[in-house]
Amino acid sequence: MIKLKNILTKILEVICVIMFAFITIVGTYQIVTRYVFNAPSTVSEELLTYSFTWLALLAAALVFAKREHMRMGFLADKFSGNALRWIYIFSELLVILFAALIMIYGGTSITKLTMTQVTASLGIPMSMIYVIVPICGIFVILFGVINIYELLRAKEVKPLSAKKETVISNKSAVVQKAIVKGDK
């Protein structure tokens, strides 16, 4: 299970990095064609918008694996022991419910519905674009199931906010180091 999660996260990570680099290049290309060559590109705006949407949804799925989506933990995280375990499992169940209803069921329906529609600039079937919604839904559900498995198996469940705080302080440590270095 843990291994599967690591593999899936790594795959998503790499895809996200590639897509982010891709939209950065397309974005730069669009500006260059518009200002330098004065020949605006019609295709790049649509390409950019849909690639960005794919990136955002895939990255969102990735963050579900890490359980780092924005939440309000000030009350829930006060609990400990088994109460905290079940609160977190409940939360994961709702994540799975949302992914199943909206992303997979609804996403599959909209993908089917738009089979005959085409996008305006690229002229590809709209369903090819919408299909990312159910795909991400599958990832989210897999991560949800693995997270529940981990929560059930863990000897002690730690509050998520504690985890988040270490993340922030790690980040600021990085910042500090970089600045000292940049000062030379």
Partner: peptide
């Protein structure tokens, strides 16, 4: 020529605008 003109989001409108010599921008 060289102007970016908004067209409705349809392939034919994009084609028409290009036939006029402008750059079609569906939005």
């Amino acid at each position: 020529k060289g102007k970016k003109i908004r067209v409705q989001q349809s392939p034919t409108n994009v084609k028409m605008m290009e036939a006029f010599g402008a750059s079609a921008t569906p939005m």
